[in-house]
Nucleic acid binder design. Structure first.
Lengths: 260, 260
DNA sequence: TACCTGAAGAATGTCGACAATATAACGATT
DNA sequence: AATCGTTATATTGTCGACATTCTTCAGGTA
C-alpha cells in the first residue's frame, strides 16, 4: 500500500489535521509521524484493535522511539489510539455502544458547518461550496464506476469533510477530521461496515442543494436524518441495505515510508 | 496558587478532558502531567504566549523531559500549546482574529448539546439537567457575593461545560473542554477579557428554561445570541459592558505539585 | 479438567547524554 | 545610528540504555 506524505495527494488518504495556527513553518518530525500514523489507521494498515509496537513502527519509520511516542500521544488525545500503562498502544475499536455518540458528535460539527455556510452571502456561499460540489461529483463517479464499497466510503467521507472545510474554521476542521477517522475505524471494525445505500446520492444532492439555497435548517435536518438512518443500519435496527458491495480489507502488514 | 490534582476539586480548576474510553485503569503519568499542564494554563499559571521550558517544568513536576514532552504533544493536538521546531513550546494566544472561529466552534458543540438534551424524554431530561441547575445556582451565588470577574467567569464556563457533560457524550465533552480552555486563554490574553454583563443571569436562566421545556431550537438560538453578543463585546464592536469588574491575574510564578 | 501460582520473556516507562538548532548578545560596517 | 554578520549560549531534538511492568506460558493443585 502506498503511503504518500506529500500534501498534494493527502486527500486520497483522507482528511488530515493541520496545526491550528496556520503560519509558515516546516513541519516538525512529530507532525510527520502523526500524519503517517493517521494515514496508516485510515488506510487500514493499522487495523482497529491491533497493538502498535513502538520499536517496530519506529524502526519502520526510521526514527527512534522517543519521537514516535510523542506523536502517538497526539493520536491518543484524538481518541484514535489508546494507551494502557505498561501494555502500550492499541488502535481504538469503535464498538456498537459508541456509534450513537460518534454520529451525534459528527452531527454537532457538520450541522454547524452547513448552517454556517448557508448563512453566508449568496455570492461567497457559492464560492465556498464549489469544492464540495467537486467532491459530490467524485462520489457520483465512484458510484457509476462501480467502485468497491471502500472507495465509495472514501468519497462519502471526503465530501462530509469538504463541507466542514468550506467553513474555513480550523477548529471545526480538526474535530471533523478526528471524527471521520473514527467513522472509518467503525467501518473497519464491523464486518458489514461497508455497505452502500442506493439513496446516498439523493441525500447528498439534497443536502448540497439546501446549503446552496441558504436553508441551513433544512440542511441540518437532512444531515440528522441521514445520520439517523446510518446509525440504525450499523446497529442493525432497521431495514437491510438496498445494495451491498463487500469491501476487502487488504491484510498487508505494516509498510510505512521512511521519513527523510 | 494551589494546583490540586485530586479529582474531587477538579471542577474548581475547570473542566478536564478524560480519556475517551472510560474503563477502570490507573491514570498514566502522561495523563497526570497533561492535567497539570491544562490546569496551569486554565489557572493562569502558564500565561498565554509564555514559553514553556521543558527542563524547568519537568523538574518542577518531578519527572524527566521525556514524559513531559509526550504530555505536551497532547496539548499541542488540543490547540493549547504550539511547538515551533527548535524553538520549543509556547502557550497559544487567541488573537482577535480567532474569536469568531472559537465561538462558532463552541456554538457547534453546545448547541448540539442543548438540542440533544431537549430531545430527551421529559423525565430523564429533568434528571440530566439537574447538575446544570446546580451550576447555575453557583453562578448566581458568585454574582451575589460580588466575586471578582475571574470567579464569575469560572462559574460561567463551568455551567456551559456542565450542559455538554449532561449529554454524557465523551467526544463532545472532550471538544467542549478544549474550547472552554481556549476561551479562558482568550480572556487572559485581552486586558478587557474579564468583563461581566449584568444580563448574564437572565440569559442562562432562559437557556436552562428552554432546555428543560424541551425547546432545543429556542435554546440553540439563545446560545447563538449570547455568543454573538459576547464576540461583539470582545471585539469592541458594540455597546460597552454594563458593569465592569477588573480581574487580577496573579503573576505568581510556576508552582506545580510534584507527582507522586 | 479447570483454576490458580509463579517464573521467563518481551514490551513499555523513564532517564541521562549528546548533537542540532534557534536565540541573543556583541561587534563591525555602512 | 541603524543594520548586518558573527559568535556564544541556551534550549530543543534525538537517541541509546536501563528499570519497571505487563503478558504469556509452564507447572502444580483442587
Amino acid at each position: 500500500m502506498n503511503q504518500t506524505q506529500d500534501r498534494g495527494s493527502a486527500r486520497r488518504n483522507g482528511p488530515v489535521t493541520r496545526p491550528l495556527v496556520n503560519t509558515v513553518r516546516r513541519p516538525s518530525t512529530v507532525d510527520l509521524i502523526a500524519v503517517e500514523l493517521r494515514n496508516a489507521i485510515y488506510g487500514g494498515t493499522l487495523m482497529p484493535g491491533s497493538s502498535v509496537r513502538e520499536a517496530e513502527v519506529a524502526s519502520q519509520l526510521g526514527v527512534s522511539r522517543g519521537p514516535l511516542r510523542e506523536s502517538a500521544q497526539r493520536l491518543v488525545q484524538e481518541g484514535l489510539l489508546v494507551a494502557r500503562p505498561g501494555a502500550g498502544l492499541r488502535v481504538v475499536t469503535v464498538g456498537a455502544d459508541q456509534i450513537d455518540d460518534l454520529y451525534q458528535a459528527r452531527l454537532a460539527i457538520e450541522s454547524a458547518a452547513v448552517r454556517q455556510i448557508a448563512a453566508l452571502d449568496p455570492e461567497v456561499r457559492r464560492r465556498h461550496i464549489a469544492s464540495a460540489e467537486v467532491l459530490f461529483d467524485a462520489l457520483e463517479s465512484a458510484l457509476e464506476d462501480g467502485s468497491d464499497a471502500r472507495r465509495i466510503g472514501d468519497a462519502d467521507l471526503d465530501l462530509h469533510y469538504g463541507l466542514v472545510e468550506a467553513t474555513g474554521n480550523l477548529r471545526l476542521m480538526s474535530f471533523a477530521s478526528t471524527l471521520i477517522i473514527q467513522t472509518r475505524i467503525a467501518a473497519l471494525s464491523h464486518a458489514d461496515g461497508y455497505v452502500v445505500r442506493t439513496d446516498i446520492l439523493d441525500v447528498h444532492r439534497t443536502l448540497l442543494r439546501q446549503v446552496s439555497d441558504g436553508d441551513g435548517q433544512a440542511a441540518s435536518e437532512t444531515l440528522a436524518g441521514h445520520f439517523r438512518q446510518t446509525v440504525d443500519r450499523l446497529l442493525g435496527r432497521l431495514d437491510k441495505p438496498f445494495s451491498t458491495v463487500s469491501g476487502e480489507a487488504d491484510g498487508s502488514h505494516f509498510s510505512f515510508n521512511r521519513l527523510p
